[in-house]
Design a protein around this nucleic acid. Structure first.
Length: 572
DNA sequence: ATTAGGG
DNA sequence: CCCTAAT
């Protein structure tokens, strides 16, 4: 469905300019800029089409693109109110609805008779969704009836924006605007304004005075300067005259004071960082809903950029959905190309940093973009990780920087190992990265080699907490390691067990050869692993180790030196 | 959410 | 390491 985007600011201006009978118009305004369609274009076709009582085809529109309520607007036309619940500052209307809307609203000359309230919902960036706002919105929800709004005119229409500069709320209460010739265009309206009026409008709009006396310039600024949200967003909040007073009825002002006399109010940002519940609800939402919510893939490039910029702040539900989609796509692809699937997971882990510092290009982004069919949605890397461990990884990612630090500390603690292994690990890791061809070869995740210190830590943890308490070990000994989840610990322990078995055997046979350079796990550790394996029976692995477990505790003299068995046993 | 286990 | 099932 063809989608147009329409700045609500622009819409507001347009409405106010062309419609004289809208007594009150309360809208939120995020001052978004990218999606502005020119005023001229909006005002170009002043038709008086069938408006009917089904105002502007909102219902149809709502059914087409409705999703959650994000913003709430109350339009009052004469004594008839129309409530608009909007989800974003961007109107995304189908062409048909746009025609109806614009033509109807803008071209209307007579009184619009609204038989009922109408709810407008339009697709938007979902990340703006805030539970609190939803609550408020529902509180203000016009479902209560078309005339319920009046009592609420004093209440603030608020919206919580997820973006920093976008969370300003502009309340526009259109004071009784003198009836204007509906046919008169905005330019003529502006033309008729005096310099003082223009100045006031300018001040009210931009929050600052101007000494320019050029009417053309002022006109231009008022009309088109609004397209720049920053200008208006920066206006001081206290300067504005609150238009929401009840004296509105008796107030007479110029059209533009009415139009531009809006107060802005900043609202605390309540958006929560993690929206797993949203994700859950999203998952449970119907496909049509999702399609409606996220079906605006046909956005213009400008909007995409805008979206991207906003996304840098916080992962959106849309993004999450996309990631889910991509996940499924990846799974599908896995059937065909089994090796290219997990390339996009890599960047989420600690080694990505290493990768970057090593001078790699950010290939994961590329792959992601490609996977998104050129959507080029750049996300603050770090999310979304694959399911499950996502939150933890995010949480730990901040501590990643310290990992080296604390690891080195641990190393110093465990002085017995003279393994300054972290650097080696980096090098090894880098080697593994370089080895893997970026093309289709799938490296699993990071595949960060386990350093000896890490292994020792793991062994220590196992000795302290026993086999199977991976979470404990992770929390207490690997807390600083962004990678190394508890699952990793478990896997590593399993591998250690295996390695200890085989390698001990081999080393027993060929003690002097030491051809296993690639496996730098020192013998003491392996011995210790065997000890612990015998002490803490690993559920299934024990069967294997049990047979090999015979040669262990007594035979390890070196292990006693490195790992006093007493400590291990003591725990047990 | 953790763990065990197969791959 | 990844994935899944089981708990």
């Amino acid at each position: 469905m063809p989608v147009i985007t329409l700045s609500r600011r622009l819409l507001r201006i347009a409405l106010n300019l062309k419609i004289s009978r809208w007594d009150k118009l309360r809208k939120m305004d995020h001052f978004l800029e990218d999606e502005v369609i020119g005023v001229e274009h909006l005002l170009a076709e002043p038709k008086c089409n069938n408006l009917g009582d089904d105002v502007l085809g909102f219902n149809t529109f709502s059914q087409e693109t409705c999703c959650n309520f994000e913003e709430f607007s109350t339009l009052e036309f004469g004594s008839i109110k129309t409530d608009c619940v909007a989800r974003d500052s961007n109107l995304k209307l189908s062409e048909k609805v746009k025609e109806e809307f614009l033509d109807g609203v803008l071209g209307r000359t007579g009184a619009i008779v609204l038989g009922r309230k109408n709810t407008i919902s339009y697709t938007c960036e979902d990340y703006l969704l805030d539970a609190e706002f939803v609550e408020e919105a529902s509180d203000l929800n016009p479902m209560r009836g078309p005339y319920a709004v009046d009592s609420r005119l004093e209440s603030k229409c608020t919206v919580s924006g997820g973006s920093g500069c976008g969370d300003e709320i502009s309340e526009v209460a259109i004071a009784p605007i003198p009836v204007l010739q509906t046919s008169s265009l905005h330019s003529s309206l502006l033309e008729r304004m005096t310099i003082d009026e223009l100045h006031e409008a300018f001040r009210n709009t931009f929050g600052c005075q101007t000494t320019v006396t050029d009417k053309q310039w002022l006109k231009h600024q008022l009309l088109f300067g609004l397209r720049n949200p920053l200008v208006s967003s920066n206006e001081c909040e206290g300067k504005m005259i609150s238009p929401t007073s009840d004296q509105d009825s008796g107030r007479v002002c110029t059209p533009f004071t009415g139009v531009f006399n809006f107060k802005k109010r900043r609202r605390v940002q309540h958006v929560k960082r993690e929206r797993h519940d949203n994700l859950a609800s999203l998952k449970s939402s119907s496909s049509e809903e999702r399609k409606a919510m996220f079906g605006f893939s046909e956005l213009g490039e400008a909007e995409n950029r805008h979206v991207a910029s906003k996304r840098s702040r916080k992962p959106t539900r849309r993004y999450i959905d996309e990631s889910l989609e991509q996940n499924s796509m990846r799974k599908k692809r896995r059937c065909r190309i089994s090796n290219t699937c997990s390339s996009d997971k890599i960047l989420h882990n600690g080694s990505y940093k290493q990768l970057c510092t090593k001078g790699f290009e950010a290939k994961p982004f590329v792959s992601r973009e490609v996977a998104l069919k050129g959507a080029c949605i750049q996300v603050p890397f770090g999310e979304p990780v694959r399911r499950g461990h996502m939150k933890k990884k995010v949480h730990e990612s901040d501590g990643f920087k310290d990992s080296k630090l604390s690891d080195s500390k641990v190393d110093s603690d465990m002085e017995s190992f003279s393994t300054k292994s972290q650097e080696d690990v980096s090098g090894d890791d880098y080697d593994t990265w370089t080895k893997t061809p970026q093309k289709g070869k799938s490296r699993r995740k990071n595949h960060i080699y386990w350093s000896v210190s890490e292994v020792s830590k793991l062994v220590e943890g196992v000795s302290m907490y026993g086999v199977g308490r991976w979470t404990e070990i992770k929390r207490l000994l690997f807390h600083s390691s962004a990678n190394r989840t508890s699952v990793d610990l478990k896997d590593k322990w399993r591998n250690l067990l295996r390695a200890s078995c085989s390698q001990l055997k081999i080393s027993r046979e060929v003690e002097s050869k030491r051809k296993h350079r690639s496996k730098p796990i020192p013998q003491p550790i392996l011995h210790r692993v065997m000890e612990l394996a015998s002490i803490h029976p690993y559920p299934r692995e024990r069967k294997k180790t049990a047979s090999v477990a015979s040669p262990l505790p007594g035979t390890s003299t070196t292990s006693d030196k490195m790992f006093p068995l007493s400590t291990a046993v003591r725990i047990m």
